[in-house]
Simulated scan of single mutants.
Amino acid sequence: MARLAWRGLRPPTPDEWEHDCGAGATTLFRWGDEYPDGEPYGDVPLIQQPNFFGLVIGDDPYRAEFTTDPSVLCGGDGGSALCGGSGAFLSWVTLATAYRDPTLAEVVYDGSLVGETPLRPVLPLP
């Protein structure tokens, strides 16, 4: 975080992350309220295409992203729903723009999954 701050960057707030992921969408997912059959794993063009802001974000249920709030990771659940057998719907919900997983944040800050948890830098504008 110190290196980001030195460059004038920071992680997004949870609300900024949600806004960036949804790109103005008022639906459950950035592409709408429906989800395809099956699970969000592997080559699924729907989730791997850029949103209306041109961002590829919230595209992998295994990969959550850091925010300015240490208790909030956005964009996935570390694969818990997918690997835990929660079913297709709950696996897709982890990619909803408003999805937040405080339990995963505890695991990451305890030292697990750190190398798999990206940080999307934000340049604040005056």
Rank of each mutant, 00 (worst) to 15 (best):
D33T: 04
P50W: 12
R7V: 02
W31Q: 07
D77F: 10
G42M: 12
E16F: 00
L104K: 01
A5I: 05
R10Y: 01
V72Y: 14
L46A: 01
T13D: 04
G58Q: 07
G54S: 10
L82S: 12
D110K: 08
G24E: 06
G75M: 07
G8F: 04
L104I: 06
R30D: 07
F29M: 09
V44G: 11
D110S: 15
F53E: 12
G85Y: 13
F89G: 03
T103H: 14
R100Y: 04
M1A: 13
P11H: 01
R3S: 12
L28K: 03
V114Y: 00
D69H: 12
R3K: 14
R100W: 04
S91E: 10
L113N: 14
V108K: 11
A5L: 11
V114M: 02
E18K: 01
D37N: 07
S91C: 11
L55R: 14
D59T: 01
V56M: 13
Y99C: 04
V114C: 04
W17G: 00
E18R: 04
A64E: 08
Q49E: 14
D15P: 00
Q48V: 03
F53L: 15
E16G: 00
P70A: 15
S112K: 07
L82I: 15
A98W: 02
T26N: 08
A98M: 02
T103S: 13
L82M: 14
L123M: 05
M1I: 09
V72T: 10
E106Y: 09
F52E: 13
V108C: 08
T97I: 04
G79Q: 09
T13R: 03
N51P: 12
I57P: 08
G32V: 04
T27R: 00
L113Q: 11
F29R: 06
G38I: 10
P102R: 07
G85P: 03
A23C: 05
M1T: 13
P61A: 03
F66T: 14
L4S: 12
P121M: 02
P45S: 08
Y62K: 05
L55S: 10
M1V: 12
T27Y: 00
W6E: 15
P70W: 15
Q48M: 08
T27K: 00
Q49R: 15
L4K: 11
A2V: 13
L95I: 01
D110Y: 05
G8N: 09
D33W: 05
W92P: 11
